[in-house]
Design a protein around this nucleic acid. Sequence first.
DNA 1: CGCCAGATTGACT
DNA 2: GTCAATCTGGCGG
Length: 173
Amino acid sequence: MDKEFFLKNPEIVAKELLGKILVREINGKKLKSKIVETEAYYDEKDPASRACQNGDLKKTMEMDAGTILVYGVHNNWLINFVTGEKGKAEAVLIRALEPLNFNVNCKGPGLLTKALEINKKFHKLNILSNKDMWIEENKEIFDIVKDFRIGVKKDLNKKLRFYIKNNLNVSKK
DNA sequence: CGCCAGATTGACT
DNA sequence: GTCAATCTGGCGG
């Protein structure tokens, strides 16, 4: 896992993140989970993106590839990874995980942050240089399904949600 | 400053 | 099906 991985179009990164192992270390315990559902978000052209607002979140999206962006909505923390070149304001949202060595419901963006104790303290840190959370490779082969994003009021006319076919941990609806 | 809406979830009628 | 909880930023007074 290096910076090159995140230096691509968010659509590509979202697709390539599927199947990767997200490791969260809490008090010496490593919680491992597989990323099974993601969504790509673009810059101000994307009406659903927080980049179309001009605050701290947009600035964070313009930071280096691999920067963690934690965003609060409706009483939930949502975690994103910044992608693309510096100044591009693009990111990938993690929507669902499949727990591997623990058993907590991670079928939804708000649920997985709760399960892994992800909150604002991770905001603006970088996933490539963090000792409490990181991503590991996984060579597993699987089918990827492409669909429209979930819960977005004004979506783009593009399928920007990706998930692993037939995986039971993908958020429903 | 107050009010509203939103990449959500869960509890209750 | 309806409602509310919490954080961020836009917009109106």
